[in-house]
């Protein structure tokens, strides 16, 4: 069965990019959320196998969302998406239980590497 992925990013553009990469590689994108609060809700509904989570977002940022999801499901597989210069936040996220991170600009093989490693 295809791996279910939830994509979280405030920029529709970035969501589209990731979605394309994932769909081309036979992942099942079960949802897209535009902010952290949505992401938490959608996680509860869809219980995806994996979440790609942007860090800077309105309403609820990615790290808070990550913590919320972890509260709900301690085994959640979450990969952070960050831009350069967010090292400290990435480390925070990993402390909070993120499996891996990918750095914008995304390269398809990096995204896939991170996803496959965190699912292994």
């Amino acid at each position: 069965m295809a791996v279910k992925v939830l994509i979280v990013d405030d920029a529709a553009f970035m969501r589209m990019m990731i979605k394309d990469i994932l769909v081309k590689n036979d992942f099942d994108v079960v949802g897209e959320a535009g902010d952290g609060a949505q992401a938490v809700e959608m996680y509860k509904d869809a219980s995806p196998d994996l979440v790609t989570m942007d860090i800077t977002m309105p309403e609820m940022d990615g790290i808070t969302a990550l913590k919320e999801i972890k509260k709900h499901d301690p085994d959640a597989n979450i990969i952070m998406c960050s831009a350069m210069g967010q090292q400290a936040m990435v480390i925070d996220a990993i402390q909070a239980g993120a499996k891996d991170f990918i750095v914008k600009p995304f390269q398809a093989d990096r995204v896939l590497e991170a996803i496959n490693k965190s699912l292994a």
Partner: peptide, 28 residues
């Protein structure tokens, strides 16, 4: 900051390096 940041991410992904490098510096 958040707007600049999102912009940077998008620009870099699209390969507009000048745009990305300027937003990056602005972000700093």
């Amino acid at each position: 900051f958040r707007s600049a940041h999102t912009l940077k991410g998008m620009a870099a992904t699209m390969g507009y390096e000048d745009l990305a490098s300027l937003t990056h510096q602005m972000e700093n």
